[in-house]
Write a protein that binds this DNA or RNA. Sequence first.
RNA 1: GGGCGAUUAACUCAGCGGCUAGAGUACCUCGCUUACACCGAGGGAGUCAGGGGUUCGAAUCCCUUAUCGCCCACCA
Length: 1052
Amino acid sequence: MSTELPKAYDPAAVEAKAYQTWLDEKCFAGDPNAPGEPYSIVIPPPNVTGALHLGHAINATLQDILIRMHRMAGYNTVWIPGIDHAGIATQAVVEKQLKEQEGKDRYAVGREGLVERIWQWKQQYGDRILMQLSRIGASCDWDRTRFTLDDMCAKAVRHTFFKLFKDGLIYRGKRLVNWDVYLQTSISDDEIYKETVKTSLWHIRYPIEDANRGTGFQPVLATSKLDQSTSSKSEHRPHGLEAHATDHPSHMTVATTRPETLLGDTAVAVHSQDPRWNWAIGKFVRLPLTDRLIPIIADDILVDMTFGSGVVKVTPAHDPNDYAVWQRHQGQPDQIDILNILNPNGTINEAGGPYVGMKRDAARKKMVEDLTAQGLLEKEEPHEAQVGHSDRSKTPVEPYLSDQWFVKMAPLAEPALEVVRNGTIKFYPERHAQQYLAWLGEKRDWPISRQLWWGHRIPVWSLYLHAPADTIPSEIAEYFGELGLQDDVFITVNPADDRHIQICTRTTRADRALEAMNRYYHLTGTPAIDPAQYADVVTSEKAWGIAYSIMAAPAADPVMRDPDVLDTWFSSALWPHSTLGWPDETAALKKWYPTSVLVTGRDIITLWVARMVMTGMYNMGTVDSKANRGTGFQPVLAATTDEKSDLSSTTNNPHGLEARATGEKLGIPFFDVAINPTILDGKGERMSKSKGNGVDPVDIIDTHGADALRFTLATMATETQDARLPVKKDAQGRNTSEKFDLGRNFCNKLWNAARFVLSNLEENKSTDPVDEARWSLPDRWIVSRFNRAVEEANGAIKTYRFDVYAKVCYDFFWRDFCDWYVEATKPAMKDPNRAAQTAHVLAGVLDGALRLMHPMIPFITETIWWKLNEVRPTRELPGRIATGFSERLIKAPWPTVGDFSQAAEHIFPKVQEIVGAIRNVRNEYKMDPKKPVTVAIAAPAEPTRQITENRQLVELLAICTLRDVGPEVKGAADAARATAAGCDVFVEGVVDANAEKERSQKRGEDLKKKVAMLNGRLNNAGYLAKAPPSLVQQTQDELAEAEAELAKLEVK
RNA sequence: GGGCGAUUAACUCAGCGGCUAGAGUACCUCGCUUACACCGAGGGAGUCAGGGGUUCGAAUCCCUUAUCGCCCACCA
């Protein structure tokens, strides 16, 4: 086998081979029974809607860096991959495709047909996403790949819903939705387009009633029945003239583009500071055409008193803003009613009195006529309005009050707030915690039902009786008892309606039991349904008997399953524990929950992160939930923050054993939340699939390689919230970006440096033992620099500063190792006395560097590693660089921080400075780059010794001959002069005296500026008095040095 | 409307109280010296968005204005 690396670095070949090797050897597989402290991550599941873009790539890269680094550091790691079913987004995409390809809408293929098609889509795009992750190099445990709609997740969803339902945390409530009256379904905001419609603005008079003057405000009783007309007649309202003693007007004028909604008005609102109207607050108006009295209320949010008449009609059931008014006034003294006036088909319902059964436009026309007839229409003006239309039916949508399921937030939110407030869960960067706290702090109940077909179906069945429930619930319970399913159902009577029985189910068996019951009801008399289908639940005649008696007894509607599905985020919220097997007590769940860190974007801190914390604590916490409320978790939260000291330690759990125990008890889903930057395109717009500006990471991998992609993305992972990435097309029309040249060049450099080192090691197979005493200055320096880099990298990774980690690697490897150390070894490797020790250092440092950089650029480092193992299996530098052997780099131990060499780190930079000064002069005078120049250096005693010791090094790196070094050395007449490291460097043989004069003049000016600046500082009394003494001393030293140099310049 | 953030070299970004403000790319000069031209050596380049303040000292902290971006709420 050739031990030589191919001359040219070919990312594609390197990547395919390395990845396949890792897969073949199951390097990514997590084993919960393996030793090591746990370190786990669950991937934020990408939406199955489409392909991944660079935003996903940065997210995946950062997670992979963490996983790989901790795997090397000896943790028991697992990274769980997966995909989100992304309810509405996916359904919309597939429906669009269906329309385009077959000209059908979803009703044409039906619920089951559509869901089937979405599954096909999922297969195709899900695979593509996983392929993309593999190409990036993600070391996910692919055997644990999850999908938010798979059986395992479904089980977790069912158990969570059931538990919440049982605990009374899920309830049925009203919510305004966008209603398509044609299709009779609600639609999402995304499915609405605005159309400008020419209509009118009608100004309608609402007569003011001056009743209740003495008694103050009386809230209207909340009722949706149309009984106001009778109740208002029964009330006694004196009509005294004194009611209008002032010149207050006798009516209010409201303007509306939808006069028919007047029927649903339950208040009119004015601004509390409006002098025209605030006297009327608490009084009533008589609602035209209905004879109802509705209150005049103050609402300063709704009403803009500088706009129009300053009076706004409030129709809570048919307008989002008015609905908000209703919500705001709930529980207040001026609480108002809410009244639905529409049937699902858009006609006026029984609340509409004489207009009942009319379509919207007809009702509008008739009402305008009636208002005109009664003299209540002040005027009608032409008006253009933006009206929302349904994308599906192309008809105007109606805001419509419908029944939805909600999760009560308060009891869940409080503990989730507390763990972030007290630092049990930390955000990186910290500021992102604010958004989390602000949003959760509102504790707005979470609407979880969606009128879609793609998703987890809500596991609640309804039975509407035509009389109050009575014994039915217990009979149903008995039925389930017969079937042995009593633990899988929870039966309750809707508190708002005692004829409505709700049956929440936890298993598909329970579902089938109800389904069978329903079938049987429909087929009374002919129970000839497919017995096989229900074999597991139809176990006895008795069960059938009970079912029959329930269904037959008080005339009832069939047992119907709720048609809606759950919000996508409901299943995502369970992700950290559902993927590990909850509700089963799996070994994986025990070992890896809580997970170590969540890496995600800041746009879903509220939608996702907050909800994971809530459900995690709710499902996984073992702390008494009552103790969680109110005061927080004092007893268990003592030790959280003081394990920050030892950044370099890799043997302890990153979150400390005690913190881990606390986390387990609380059930939190993760300890850290690391927010990665949002990737923007060149125009500063967020990269996203829907905008069409997403760049496929595979395109970049094709042009630059995966390691290059990863390296560049790591450098972009700063603490900023956005990272801009200008993109252009390459010759083949693929997306690419020069940004990634950085990573590609770095990898190329690494490849070539490794080739050079390997060829040197091949030529030097000496068995001479490592002997530090014989190391040169560069040897000691580079080893110390390596350990410094490891220390810095540890700190960077611990604080999720991936840009710092990348920069540390870049500077160490390219600047220190390649530019200086490798150059310095060239003569050393040719010197038989030094070659053996130099080879030891080269091997040891290359070994360490590969380990250090592997998490970020895994493919290339692994490939080089294999060759290094062949050429030189042992590379230990005792005390400095520990290099335990490993056949595969992915499993090699993470480098420890070895001893530093303070002296070498102090002296070597001085050599660099002197070399730099000589090179500068050579370049400025355009001297022949190959021809050595003669140099003399005037230096104090100590530097003289150091320079002399490293004479060869200076001569090599600066291409010069050192004529003389010492305290008394003088420069020749034709020498150019430079100052470096406190020494005077004379480069001889400069012919152009004028140029030299110019040069020293320029230098003199710089020095004068500096002297002036330093003097200014030192002449400032405040500076001397208040600045730290060491700083003042430093300023004085600098001044002395500058003045000395200036003096020499002027003497010459 | 609320919140978060950005504005530093031509571009993309570090630096977040004290080095003459840095990096990569681009640019200029020189060099194909047997690891690397996806390279090496050197160089030029910035009123740190504008204004005010705090401080001995501000790119860095505070206030303010402007422009841009993102999230949330909303557009009778």
